[in-house]
Design a protein around this nucleic acid. Structure first.
Lengths: 213, 213, 213, 213
DNA sequence: CATGAATGAGTATTCATTCAT
DNA sequence: CATGAATGAATACTCATTCAT
């Protein structure tokens, strides 16, 4: 009897624990987005919470730990979404557009995560926090995708690392621009990004007088 | 008596003042690049200096003030260089490539500034530090350039803000990739970026099955 | 209904209560020996246990309370042993040697208690912890013993308090030295201590040139 | 002119620095004596001072560092005094008595240091704080002295380490007893200790019925 | 009674900033 | 102006203790 209850309802304690953990994660998301990782203090996080200062340490060891949990979360969600994209791709073009679209949509629907990621982009050096394993892995997979596309003759044999970097750069920059607009239109953004990137890759542009040495 | 000494060596004070200010700026560049803006303390800066802690406040009011001075400096240098590029441009293509090349070269020759900019990119929200007025102005000028190019029929009438963003995104991402290579080859990077961007802009790529709604 | 269970298993509760109390005492012994009284926290104690933190307070009010319980325990054991020694003594010499031997043997067989006592020796001032009532009482009894020995003419009429102190000092210091040796040899230690103390007491040593005062 | 002033008067800054350092050392002596090393916090130290909390760290890195400074100080003073004793010794007996006397006198004249040493005696395990290098070195020298005395036939060939330990034990315990009396009489204490130790060492005491197995 | 999460006061330490020299 | 010690607010983190389950 009591065991069946435990199965049906998680018990107040577990529920509360989950709630508190989530409250801390949400507060941290807010804080990191607003003040950036370096500037955020643990106090900034718990201040955005109803909890006592010590409670923070029942859930995380440090602000770095919360940050890692957050970027794991975002990275994991994005990677799963992009894995599905890869799975259902029928051509390189459609893959690229679907990927842009999925990526833009994710952040359009999670503005807090967007702000968090944006505030902490490019941060590496000692901290390397937002370039966590998830992001690295995602970029590595893209690199593979491009390698394969070249091997299959779908795109010309350009510098693969430059291409991967460009893909990321276009994604970041169009994302930033899109997020400043209302209404948010991830589809238009994806079409623009895809057109630019695919035409850029396949195009036969040849500079005219660019030979300045 | 002692004042006579001060009077006799007229430029001495100014020279020393300049030296100290520069020493602080250099130390701050180091520190921000290594630890990031948020993580850097005034102590981190003066520690990289022969000066006493109090001396810092004879030159700057806070770490934010030094940071602003640094980004003014970098922004100003870059804007002057890019203004020259604009002045000597003979065509949109050549302007774009020259711009990429100049931009990449600048950071190739100033790795400290690159690290500084990189560590603090995307940081805005409350701090807005690296997106200072200089950078904003530079992007605004680029926006105008693209507007004009469209008006003159040099490039198709695409979404100007998306285009400006993309130009920046490609510039950032290729720069990052280039800076990890040895030897540094800004020319190759500029050619790649130009080709990608210009073909992307002018290309007539049309997605095939991308209409997913 | 549920109370019937409680009634049916009569000693169970008391047994468990005893177990938990002992577990806490053992953990505290470990902790105090390893970290010292001042440095030990209640957390250090329960961490060495399978119990939950709150359970500690079902048995003790504070770390001081556990410490007192521990020193009561050790003091009580030692006092009983030394009382037996006193009871079976046939001469002052044999009493002293038996006492040393018993004392050294006790700690040789209870290294944890030795470490505990050693780490917290001399600690009084505000805390007075290890010089608890048991130890004081033991020393008072020794003081009486010496008084009697003097009254009976067994030893010369020296300063009794200095003598008691010396007995303790020799006991402590020889104990420390013995505990660092392997194998532990409480008998040899007792013989050495007895010889030194008894000859010292009875000896007719007269300084030669020591009259400097 | 100004340099001569500097030589004659240390300058307010140095004076103040010295004063503050001394104030911290004195406060720490108080605190350690009263609460013991483990129980003392840095706050306990600065609270006994007119200084601000941060000022502590201009002089010492941690409470351990102050403690080390204090025990270096005491150890160094004692070692110098005992070195003089050793130098002026004319016989082993006179050496021992002079040593006791010097030792007792030192603490009789420095009750704060006595309390400090007493509160933190026996503290080792992880902390080993009061058994610092000075004390170890002092005991090692005593060990040598006893070795030599045996080699020269001045005292019988007893267990040297036990003897050294006993010397220390007698010194500690008589010191404790003496410090509780008024007036303080280091000379009487030294005579008692010397008599006990020297007769103990030289005496021909042989236990009678000590054969307990 | 046992549990272990919540609490908030307490601790060590760092920092930006001031100011006497 | 340069110096560097003093300051005390702020920060990360720990702890004893309570209390709902």
């Amino acid at each position: 009897m009591s065991s069946s209850i435990k199965t049906l309802a998680p018990g107040r304690r577990e529920v509360n624990r989950k709630n508190n953990r989530d409250a801390i994660l949400d507060a941290a998301r807010d804080a990191f987005a607003a003040i950036g990782y370096g500037g955020t203090t643990v106090r900034d996080i718990i201040r955005r919470t109803n909890l006592a200062s010590g409670t923070f340490y029942n859930y995380f060891d440090s602000k770095e730990a919360v940050f890692n949990a957050l970027s794991e979360e975002i990275g994991s969600e994005l990677r799963h979404l992009l894995r599905d994209v890869r799975r259902r791709a029928t051509s390189f073009d459609s893959f690229i557009e679907d990927m842009f679209y999925t990526y833009f949509s994710y952040y359009a629907n999670n503005r807090e995560n967007y702000l968090l990621a944006r505030s902490n982009r490019g941060r590496d050096g000692l901290n390397e926090v937002m370039q966590g394993p998830q992001v690295r892995a995602g970029l590595a997979e893209l690199n593979d995708d491009i390698h394969k596309a070249i091997a299959e003759g779908v795109i010309p044999p350009l510098d693969v690392d430059f291409l991967t970097a460009s893909l990321g750069g276009v994604a970041f920059s169009i994302l930033d621009e899109m997020m400043e607009r209302a209404p948010l239109d991830p589809e238009a953004a994806a079409q623009f990004a895809t057109r630019l990137f695919m035409a850029g890759v396949q195009g036969t542009y040849i500079g005219d007088d660019v030979n300045d040495g």
